[in-house]
């Protein structure tokens, strides 16, 4: 060996500021790990980013011709906000698989046996997933612009819409973390898909809740995804369904309230689940 092994006393924390600095640095190391995954597996990254684009092309060109939009609007203008929100919802699968793989393989335990900040494992994970979602959303926006989608209410409203989409993703991320820690089996992502796809389709994304059977329409109108889709359609100035229910009338409020409610429930649940790994 060329140098002496590092000794524990040289690197042990010395006080509060040290701890905070290291909590941030630890979280960054975990985020950086995920970014390295992108660099190591560019094909997977590209496929992940292009899958929603394929969905857009499929709906816009395969089914789009047969769709009638309320008020005679452009179908692609109508479609894109729903596709943005769907992309955010499907991100839950990425989070789940990553968290659950680490827990099963013992990587989470290795992190827990290190003198790192315990918050960093989940904080780093959520930062990485949010970066991934920002990239995904950017690709989708570019795709939308390429097929003729536009925002009409100015850049401020458009940015607010992007904020609502990322807020939904951030809230769902904690459901992904919670399920990943609770289920600890990456193969169970199939089960998660079975939960997530109905959430995606049982909404106002493709069809008007008014045309669904009564109870199904009510579920679709109150779906958190529907709130974000309706609110972003308003903010982008794209055509939407409208609707008489309270949820449909107050879409922007619901698009804030739903993610916050999910966060209030699943953030503490995830933290508790993480702590319970030591029980």
């Amino acid at each position: 060996m060329t140098t002496a092994s590092p000794a524990a006393r040289e690197v042990a924390p010395r006080g509060g500021p040290d701890r905070l600095r290291w909590a941030l640095s630890d979280a960054w190391v975990i985020t950086h790990r995920d970014l390295s995954h992108w660099a190591r597996r560019p094909a997977q990254l590209v496929v992940g980013l292009l899958f929603p684009v394929m969905m857009v092309l499929m709906f816009a060109f395969l089914f789009g011709g047969g769709m009638v939009i309320p008020g005679g609007g452009d179908y692609r203008e109508f479609l894109m906000p729903g596709m943005f929100a769907m992309t955010m919802v499907f991100g839950i699968e990425t989070t789940f698989t990553a968290v659950s793989t680490d827990a099963t393989r013992g990587v989470t335990d290795r992190f827990r046996s290190l003198p790192m900040a315990s918050s960093a494992v989940v904080a780093g994970r959520s930062a990485a997933d949010m970066l991934n979602s920002v990239a995904g959303l950017a690709v989708m926006i570019a795709c939308g612009l390429a097929i003729g989608w536009r925002w009409h209410e100015g850049p401020g409203a458009a940015l607010a819409a992007v904020g609502l989409l990322l807020l939904l993703r951030f809230a769902l991320l904690w459901i992904g973390i919670y399920l990943g820690l609770a289920i600890k089996s990456p193969e169970a992502v199939m089960a998660v898909q079975i939960l997530v796809w109905p959430l995606g389709f049982l909404s106002n994304t493709f069809a008007s809740p008014a045309t669904m059977p009564g109870w199904l329409g009510a579920v679709a109108e109150w779906n958190p995804l529907s709130a974000t889709v309706a609110a972003t359609r308003q903010l982008f100035g794209n055509p939407g369904w409208g609707g008489d229910s309270w949820a449909a009338q107050h879409a922007p409020l619901m698009a804030l309230a739903w993610p916050l409610l999910i966060l209030v429930i699943f953030f503490p649940l995830s933290v508790r689940r993480y702590r319970r790994l030591s029980r």
Binding site: S36, H37, R40, R105, G106, V107, D109, R110
Partner: peptide
């Protein structure tokens, strides 16, 4: 403390 567990706890991609 160093721990080497039953499963190699490594990042497979890196």
């Amino acid at each position: 403390v160093g721990l080497v567990g039953q499963h190699a706890a490594l990042d497979e991609v890196l």
